[in-house]
Design a protein around this nucleic acid. Structure first.
Lengths: 230, 230
DNA sequence: TTAGACAAGATAATCGATTTTTTAACCTAC
DNA sequence: GTAGGTTAAAAAATCGATTATCTTGTCTAA
């Protein structure tokens, strides 16, 4: 019923369903990506048990899974900790995003059908409409992720999509560092709009260049945030 | 102390150390990659408990981790199963290996120092010497993995290495399908040797082409095995 | 003064039993 | 005869308690 990682309770829109384990996984994942833990911090399992209102077993399963996913580090007999951040890693992640999302976009443009075009337009529209100041930007973040997901969806490679998702989460640990998000909304929206345009025109070359630029700008934001946060 | 996924007990050479959970994880991983489970099979947890001599908690943690890693599928409230194989997926994996290992090799050639050259020669030598008929080829398999790992090691991207590792495990599910391994040893050895040569000469272009060819040949073997197995 | 040993407390990992959910077999009503 | 419903058995998921390991502070001996 699923593809195993984002796991059960189909990715988004999950209602009350799913196992305790999968609920905690999602919740923790969001908290980690959203920067609600400080990098390097050691997790106090007992505290988490209360915070997320679960028993030990499902909690440990969630933590184990997050470690496999790369959002936690598990140390031999001393529990879990939040991975440190480093400039080197940020560059690694950004570089990888460049390569992989570029590749995916090219393939998506080659394979995407008209249903994709519709989805893409819809996702872009929703994103533009979203109020970034709403619930701490959570809603906007979700739509933003969704937009990028839609953009590369028909690339034809399950594994490529999987890696991109993972990198995106990693990247967001940097991009969402520190307080709120006084993003330069204007330029972002413009780029998203242009991306859709170029995708619809099947202008692979230009689309990829814009995507590179888009990721590069995100990288600069993330870097600034990282440097301010150190 | 580690990088979280291959997990504790540093990847290879693990002695008796590590938690029950990590031991089972490694053991199960090898069994899954080595084809000791049939694709699509549902895992009987109680049977596994006995087979691997662990309690429920560490076993479930190992299974959860393997699901996050992609070697198992977890279904909402009905346990774990071994992912099905498909020709489409095989092609996806092979294609991704092409891209990612090619990229990694280029970077490795650009960054690798003389220590790398030494490691590479050593790894190639050990591989050539290995007796493939020994313990069901396990020893050879390990050296083969190690060789490819060494080849791309200095690529400079932790994430790229991680993805490659993952793809390699996925690929091996196909390549090691069915009985034993009557590999055409000659040609493989020759290619490995040539790869080392070209890497040492820093001939990026030729090395990448050979790598492409090498992976492509592996793909053909894997495909044959897959088709025979269906 | 400091390196090493030791013990007490804290934390991680594991176990055994319980609860929840699914599966499968059977039964009934149409 | 089959769709729908009931229930017993099986399996998954979770809980509570136990065991093993690490951590910290203190003491001793060089």
């Amino acid at each position: 019923m699923n593809t195993s990682l984002p796991n059960n309770a189909s990715s988004k829109s999950a209602g009350p369903a799913g196992t305790a384990s999968s609920r905690v996984f999602e919740h923790l994942r969001k908290d980690l990506v959203g920067g609600r833990f400080v990098a390097g911090e050691k997790l106090a399992i007992n505290a988490l048990k209360e915070r997320y209102e679960v028993g030990l077993s499902p909690l440990r399963e969630a933590l184990t899974k997050l470690a496999a996913y790369g959002l936690l580090v598990q140390e031999n007999q001393r529990g879990f900790r939040v991975p440190k951040l480093s400039r080197d890693e940020l560059e690694d992640i950004a570089q990888m995003r460049l390569e992989m999302e570029g590749m995916a976009l090219e393939r998506a443009i080659a394979h995407g059908d008209s249903l994709w075009e519709a989805d893409l337009l819809a996702a872009a529209h929703r994103l533009k409409r979203a109020d970034i100041s709403l619930d701490k930007g959570e809603a906007w973040e979700h739509l933003h992720t969704q937009f990028h997901r839609t953009l590369v969806a028909p690339c034809g490679s399950v594994w490529l999509l999987r890696f991109i998702e993972q990198l995106h989460d990693q990247f967001d640990r940097y991009r969402r560092l520190g307080p709120k998000m006084p993003t330069i909304r204007q330029e972002l929206d413009e780029q998203h709009h242009q991306l859709v345009e170029l995708a619809l025109q099947r202008d692979t070359q230009a689309a990829r260049e814009l995507m590179d630029d888009h990721i590069h700008k995100s990288y600069e934001v993330a870097l600034k945030r990282y440097q301010a946060h150190v």
